[in-house]
Design a protein around this nucleic acid. Structure first.
Lengths: 322, 322
DNA sequence: GTATCGCTTTTAATTATTTAATACTGTTTT
DNA sequence: AAAACAGTATTAAATAATTAAAAGCGATAC
């Protein structure tokens, strides 16, 4: 009983805002909901009656508990009157009525990309112990999120738990690269087969035509713009794999394409020659696909993936001896 | 300063054992290390000098911090004398000197199997909200372990976060089953190709011969023992896939085989006929493999996997209308 | 000079606390 | 009477706080 009522008075305590120390869980949800409610009130004239608590909870996308906390504050601030079901707007909310949102970690969503980026860019060696505390600081993400993220990565065999606690980076070893390349080949050849069977009105066909044109255009100015190939490579493989509608394939493809993409970008040895050759390989695949010649397409793809694998491995070797 | 010294006296406090409430983290590591050290002491005669702290930490596989805590207790119990580097055994340890290991959650390792078992056995519907607290109670696993586990599963698209917090079971929908089957087909056909290329002295060949014999034996008594097929099915697919040495494939295969295995066990409709047919399909694959006929093997495998897919889907449909 | 120790600092596992979500219950409104 | 609603109680999720363990760092003994 007291528990609920106390909401009404809590924010009236000295300081107004809660001390950070007391907040086991952030009240960001409440703050956002409050502002959303303000916006809603702004659309109504003074004297208007507010809808039911459950209706408001639907509007703000939060539970009734949060709504009641918001209403308490609205009443207290003098924005509304509140007695049971009767909730009336007293005055139109002003900009200064909003509560500031404690700047949360907006960084969380991008974590995977930034983490892989870090590993590949700084060439973090295999068997490096990963400190959750340190990663948390560097990536500006709460520790528990990082733990969940690492738990997810462990499913890909990229990291593993250490017996003495914490985590350890397993890849990027030679074995990892080989197995990744092999797995990519399996997925990609399957995708090629799917493209061959795609109906004539499938969006992949115009997309491939565009990509072919882009390849030809880049080939004509390869001497100067060879570094643009990386983007083209990603687009090509994305187009081919887009035909396969499979959540498992998609999940892996995300990681695979990221890793290959970065290696293409950073391995600068013979970059121009490599990219020129890859353009040729891509065009061969597209030719075979458009001719609906499955065997030829798979052969061409196999050749291209073999080149990719070799490139990936040699870039690892280069780092090893660096 | 006081913090560390207190180790020496803490265990002398009333009760001897720490109150559970005070233990933010379990001291299981210390307890195990202590017993290990006792075992080590038992091999030495009284009066013998114990090795350096770092050496002991290597023996017990823990940090020096834990070793020092153990030494404190050993000294206190009168088992050793300890003054700086001088550590001598005073008497041979007796069985009652061991500390009891607080029975921890030995349940953690088996979590994946038990979780999938639960989903499939009780036919938990798609879009069911999963409560970490409840799962934690039912599976007798700490909450944070469950969160990490669910984070891992989300990589397979089996579960996902909810915006209002917590997790939600996504599969087992029809789409999930279709995509899982398709993915399994891709992996399995690849495995078949690998088997074909395996050298004559590869262990897969004798294994397949054994499995063929087991199939023939079961076929002769299929009328009574048809339910034994489930084990045979698992053995067959495991043998074929064992040829592919790939961490990504292996990780998926674990989940896939579990799911198909359970469905074979529980879908009781036409079980005898289904299993008899599957035996024939398996034998056809084995025949083609032993004849080193890649195309025939892949065709046979495709037929078998198609049957499997149909069975999986119809078992889902059966549940839907139940 | 180097191996080892005492002590300090840092990290990770786990509990505890706070906020939010949900379930339940009786009352009011239609 | 039935539906909608607010008040209350319970439960869960996020995250801070706490403790065990690990790692690090001079000092010291050999």
């Amino acid at each position: 009983m007291f528990f609920i009522i106390s909401y009404k008075y809590r924010s009236a305590m000295p300081g107004g805002q809660q001390r950070k120390k007391d907040m086991a869980r952030s009240d960001a949800r409440y703050r956002e909901a409050y502002n959303t409610l303000l916006d809603h009130c702004a659309t109504l004239p003074p004297g208007a009656v507010l809808p039911a608590e459950s209706a408001l909870s639907a509007i703000a996308g939060v539970s009734r508990t949060v709504i009641r906390r918001c209403l308490s504050r609205l009443e207290e601030t003098g924005l509304i009157s509140w007695d049971g079901r009767d909730k009336r707007i007293l005055r139109t909310p002003a900009p200064e009525d909003r509560i500031v949102l404690a700047d949360g970690h907006g960084a969380s969503d991008d974590l995977e990309r930034r983490f892989l980026d870090w590993i590949l860019r700084f060439d973090v060696p295999a068997n490096t112990p990963l400190s959750v505390a340190e990663l948390s600081r560097n990536f500006d993400v709460p520790q528990h999120e990082l733990k969940e993220f690492l738990a997810g990565l462990s499913r890909f065999g990229l990291v593993a738990r250490r017996k003495q606690g914490g985590w350890m980076l397993l890849g990027f070893t030679r074995e990892f690269a080989v197995e990744l390349s092999d797995f990519r080949t399996v997925l990609e050849l399957n995708a090629i087969s799917h493209v061959i069977d795609a109906p004539v009105d499938h969006p992949v066909w115009p997309r491939l035509r565009e990509i072919r044109a882009a390849h030809l255009a880049l080939r004509s100015r390869i001497d100067t713009d060879f570094h643009e190939f990386s983007k083209l490579d990603e687009a090509f493989h994305e187009a081919v794999n887009s035909v396969v509608k499979n959540r498992f394939v998609a999940e892996f493809q995300k990681v695979i394409s990221l890793i290959f993409h970065y290696h293409y970008m950073w391995d600068k040895t013979h970059e121009k020659i490599r990219n020129a050759a890859a353009i040729g390989e891509h065009l061969a695949i597209i030719d075979a696909l458009e001719a609906r010649d499955g065997d030829a397409a798979r052969d061409a793809a196999r050749r291209h993936l073999k080149t990719s694998k070799t490139t990936l491995l040699s870039s690892l070797r280069a780092h090893e001896f660096a």
